[in-house]
Structures are given as C-alpha cells and as structure tokens.
C-alpha cells in the first residue's frame, strides 16, 4: 500500500439554517480556502470526488452544481458518491493507491435545513414494507435507545454524559453549532423529545460543507509540514432491516476497526460522528476506546452535523450512514 495523507482541510461553520447562501455558495469559500492554504491550483489536482444527497437538496443531480464551486475547467477526473463525504475520501484514497492520482480533492456538502430531515430519512427504509409507515429518523433511533435502556446496555445518565462532554468540547470549536456547559442532571430534567430521547441526545440539523486534500508520499511531504498519514481506512455495511441485526452493538464498526488496525496502537483522539448519544456510546465501545483516548475534542456530530460533510476532516475519524449505524467507516490517521 502507498503512503497517503491528509494534507489540508477546510470547513464552513455548521449552522442550523444558512439563509444567505445556497449549497454551492456554501461550498465555494471552503474549496477556495483549501486550495489557498495548500498553495495549489486546480491543475495540480488529479482526481476530484464528492459526497452529497439529492434528497437532502430536493432535486435530482444536485451534486452537479458542486462542479461550479470546483471551477472544473479544464475538465477534471471526477466521481461522486451518493453518500457522506467520508466515502468520497475512501474512493479518492483508492485512486491514489492504484496510481491513478497523486493529489485528490474531496468534498462533501449538505443543506438539510431545506427540508424536514427526520422525515426525509424515512425514505431510506425498505419502500415496500417499512417506509409506508413513515418512521422518521428520530423515532427509529429512539426504538434502538429503548432496547439499549431496557437491556441495561446503557443508562439515560450515560447518554446525558455524552451530551455534556461533546457540548463542552465544542466550546473550543468555532465551527460547531451547539456548545456550552451543561450538567447531567440538568439534561436529565429535560422533557423527552421522542422517548427515551431528549433534545440533547440528538445531533442538531446543520448546513455546511467541508473539503480535504489527499496526497501520496513525497507529494504530501512537499505540501504539508505534518501530514496526517492514513494508516487504515475501512468501511462495512450491515443489512438494513432492524430485525436481522444486533442493535445493541455496532458490528460493522467492530469489523471496520479491526481491519483498519485501530487497536494496533494507542489512540489519542477519536472523532465519532454518531447522530445520537446512545449510538456514540456503541461506536466508542465497538472501537474499544478507553480513558487514554480523548473523544470528540471538536464536539463531534452532536455539536454540529453538516450531514454529508461530517467526516471529510479530523484525526481518527468515524462516519456513519443509514438507520441505527447501518454503515460505518473508520479511518486511522497518524501524524
């Protein structure tokens, strides 16, 4: 395998509703900043890959306008995944591995504030048997949380502690959306949003974009003093049906973590992008993280969740997709 590293990263702030800019206008400064910081031009980039969702944008081919922000001229070698930007990062990493590219631009963007996100996510479910019931994303997650609570896998206090930790960490992150000092008791006194989930158990809905520059070997060293080398990147998808998988653990995260070599050394920092507190606990356990690891120093997805752009960033990264942690990606980075 070739040595491949993240050499630059940029992001927009995560905001609940971006009213001035459309999706492309959110993305333009992010890509501009990335190129400026790395000191490169379009002509230096061999491969471009993006992640986004038509349903979030409410129109077909929504990703096409992303090319405007790239300034894709002369024509670029480009691909797109209808997935979170983390999987675009994966595809770019593959292209560098095969020698197709030396320098790849990856971006993810989403503006879920345009629609009703929890309801839209119901369209991810089996269209013949499940989706006609319109189970929204929060309710589906609540079913899982109820299972975990009733089986004693987590407690409501555990979940609140995750929220307190992430919100407090987010104070240091100027891009984060929800931040501040909360106490566990304060959160537990809140009413349920969708029982057993409280507002603080859910990630916010965020508009935003992020971009990453990936480079191979010496190219990475030329561009960056301290590249973040990708030592393992793996992703696994479970069956979707909630009845055929173990919802009390994240099996796909466990497999991906094992293959990516998470346990091969001490992990100092982990950035998890689980959208609900109980899911963050499951991911943390699946990764086998202990007290030596600082979890979500940025505040994680619970502090800002520009869906589709979550993970094209950060040090040791996790990204997820689908209901109840169906699909998970783990990336191990080293300085």
């Amino acid at each position: 395998m070739r040595d491949v590293a993240v050499v630059a990263f940029s992001q927009s702030p995560s905001v609940r509703r971006e009213t001035d800019c459309n999706e492309v206008e959110i993305l333009i400064p992010v890509i501009h900043e990335l190129r400026t910081n790395a000191g490169i031009t379009n002509e230096d980039v061999d491969f471009v890959c993006s992640g986004s969702s038509d349903y979030l944008a409410g129109q077909s081919f929504a990703f096409v306008s992303g090319l405007d922000a790239v300034g894709a001229w002369p024509p670029v070698c480009e691909s797109h995944v209808e997935m979170d930007g983390a999987w675009a990062l994966y595809e770019a990493w593959v292209k560098i591995q095969m020698g197709y590219a030396e320098l790849a631009l990856v971006y993810g963007f989403g503006k879920p504030s345009m629609g009703d996100l929890p309801l839209t996510m119901a369209l991810q479910l089996d269209p013949y048997s499940v989706m006609p019931l319109w189970p929204d994303a929060v309710s589906i997650a609540a079913l899982q949380a109820r299972l975990l609570l009733d089986d004693g896998v987590v407690s409501e206090r555990d979940m609140a502690e995750v929220a307190v930790r992430d919100r407090a960490n987010a104070k240091q992150n100027p891009y984060a959306q929800v931040k501040g000092d909360f106490s566990v008791d304060q959160i537990l006194a809140d009413p349920y949003l969708v029982s057993p989930l409280r507002k603080h158990d859910c990630s916010p809905i965020s508009d935003g974009a992020s971009a990453i520059l990936l480079a191979a070997g010496d190219r990475a060293k030329d561009l960056c003093k301290r590249p973040a080398w990708i030592r393992g990147i793996e992703h696994i998808c479970e069956p979707q049906d909630l009845g055929v998988r173990d919802l009390k653990r994240s099996r796909s995260t466990e497999i991906a973590a094992e293959k990516a070599g998470v346990r091969a050394g001490k992990i100092d920092v982990a950035e998890l992008s689980a959208p609900f507190t109980h899911q963050e606990i499951l991911v943390e356990r699946a990764l086998g993280l202990g007290s030596e690891t600082s979890i979500n120093p940025s505040g994680g997805a619970l502090a800002g969740n520009p869906i589709m752009a979550v993970s094209a960033d950060r040090a040791v990264a996790h990204a997820t997709s689908g209901p109840c942690l169906q699909q998970n990606l783990i990336c191990v980075l080293e300085g």
Partner: peptide
C-alpha cells in the same frame, strides 16, 4: 447569473 463562475470557481 450563478453563484460563481463555473469555469473559474470564483464567486
């Protein structure tokens, strides 16, 4: 108009 020039990627 468009948000940016698609050829040059500038606002």
């Amino acid at each position: 108009t468009r948000g940016c020039c698609p050829q040059h990627g500038v606002p």
